[in-house]
Design a protein around this nucleic acid. Structure first.
Lengths: 332, 332
DNA sequence: TTGTAAGCGTTATCAG
DNA sequence: CTGATAACGCTTACAA
């Protein structure tokens, strides 16, 4: 690997001049510029980013923390963040946290030591106090961390309301809810939305809300429990698609036909929901778009520290498929 | 952020001594060591990795190139690599290439400029000549790139044979194959394995092999085509699970009951195969294990350049589920 | 318009 | 056992 010094020598100029031309920075005579560019080409010279980082104190790297990249919701988010990072010349670092706060803190430290330029967190375990003296830009994605932190989320409560109202509109009389983990803000908000709609119903008992884990397996078990205890249930709103798929499996297991006897609706609109049998009605989040926006917001903060800290809340949208009555649709 | 100089000043020693204690390197008096450690604690000092990297010419970062993290096969691989990287103190960089050679080359350059320590490639577009003078360790994963490069793969041909033989053993008479893209080595090997078993059959015509794209949609279309042209087909071996799921959807669309009239077998054993209806019989690759091993191999090469370049080939295993006759199994 | 030289925060060599 | 000091490769005052 040749260095800036090699180029300078070959072009018969000083390293400062070379630096000026590679950074298009400061005055440099057209002629000497040509010479330098020639030398650069000849040596196939590429500036060493580590040296640049050391000098600047910034690395052109951003990190995304997600619980688990194997969850399709997070992989779509990751894809969006990476694409944006890439486009703006940043290197993308992916951190799987498994919702483990220790892991999060370890990553945080390690990356700070590498002069990372910013973080995007999808986390329900990071506390405001743990990051209060991190002095690089940060953005919370999907889940809020603290009010002082920029965030990009969706209107979870409204989405949940839409879901439950849809179930009612197609004739469901008794609607259960599989909620996500209680320490996740999106999950709490979706539960709120559910309650907004059904809290006055006389059939409502605590049996109608089961706690899941935002995964297929948890949805399956919660769904099984709920359907066994309340055979009269004819609609289930699961707080995410993965759990809704679990409910579909539970219904299949119990020989309850969907959507004839039971309507199921999820939340997120991951690709997977299109290929279940029946395909899943859901509340669509603009997953890629929010990931992209989080990255944009972060990079804006990085490149202009004066940028105001904003909280963006995106709308969601009902997507009708065959898992709820009278809305069948065969995709592909 | 305090520097090694601040620590030295506070502890009343030289920076060299501080360096010695943080690296447990060279002699240092127990007493002065205590003093230094005290100072480090007091200042909450953390060494600057960028400076370290500049000096050492290595960054403790490794990268993984995959076509698309949204494919669950790759996200499991990514998870494995990240876990291993993490464990060994490396930072993990994920690169989605979309099978775009230009993107691969751009990433390669960018990361080399950051003094990346090594690469793991899942690629069918990188050519040997493009990386011949990359002088950091590299490992090919899932797909070979060139014989000179360390690689971790599975016995695709044997797996394909097992798949087709299983179909025969349960009574399938006419077996079609949905193969993957022709420029992917695993896909070619699986086709070979299929042909090994059926090449002498008199029913075999070119209609029995359809090219897919390793994705659900491609599997759906290829399956549709095949089933429409050959109503007598009673078994399909798809070169990966995603396409097998597409075939399942195609059968559903055509009202062909699986496994009663048609048996379907995939390859990979991604999680998704467990939740289809019916669950998917498949050839299981040790996905996490090969990802982990690729990372181990890479790190070994990084830390000991004398390490010999090895090619590891893992065995695969038939997993029986309900998409092939007489092997029904209800998981969860 | 160009060059010199002082850092950026480490590590390692070489004296003491 | 410890301390100066010269790298590592780059950028940017400051001079010329």
């Amino acid at each position: 690997m040749s260095t800036i010094r090699d180029v300078a020598k070959l072009a018969n100029v000083s390293v400062a001049t070379v630096s000026r031309v590679i950074n298009a920075n400061g005055y440099v005579n057209e002629n000497t510029k040509q010479k330098v560019e020639e030398a650069i080409k000849q040596l196939d010279y590429r500036p060493n980013d580590v040296a640049r980082s050391l000098f600047k104190g910034r690395s052109k790297m951003i990190a995304l923390f997600v619980p688990d990249i194997q969850n399709p919701f997070f992989s779509e988010l990751a894809r969006a963040v990476e694409d944006m990072a890439n486009k703006r010349g940043y290197t993308f670092i992916l951190c799987n946290t498994d919702n483990d706060n220790q892991k999060e803190m370890d990553y945080l430290q390690a990356l700070l030591q590498k002069s990372i330029d910013g973080f995007i967190f999808v986390s329900n375990t990071i506390k405001a106090i743990q990051i209060e003296n991190v002095n690089v830009p940060m953005v919370a994605l999907d889940r809020k961390i603290s009010s002082g932190l920029a965030s990009v989320t969706v209107d979870n409560r409204d989405g949940a309301r839409q879901a439950v109202e849809h179930l009612q509109s197609i004739g469901c009389k008794q609607i259960g809810h599989i909620c996500g983990p209680e320490n996740v803000s999106s999950s709490r908000n979706r539960l709120q939305g559910y309650l907004d709609v059904v809290k006055k119903e006389d059939w409502l008992t605590s049996d109608f809300v089961q706690v899941g884990d935002y995964n297929i397996r948890g949805g399956f078990h919660a769904g099984l429990e709920m359907l066994k205890n309340n055979p009269s249930i004819d609609g289930i709103f699961a707080a995410n698609d993965l759990m809704a798929i679990g409910v579909l499996k539970a219904a299949e297991y119990l020989n309850i036909p969907v959507p004839e006897k039971l309507s199921v609706i999820g939340f997120d609109d991951i690709e997977l929901g299109k290929i279940t049998s029946p395909p899943l009605t859901t509340i669509k989040q603009p997953i890629y778009a929010i990931g992209k926006q989080a990255a944009e917001l972060l990079i804006k903060q990085i490149e202009d520290p004066e940028t105001e800290v904003k909280s963006e809340i995106h709308d969601v949208e009902l997507i009708l498929r065959a898992s709820t009555k009278e809305s069948g649709e065969w995709c592909f």
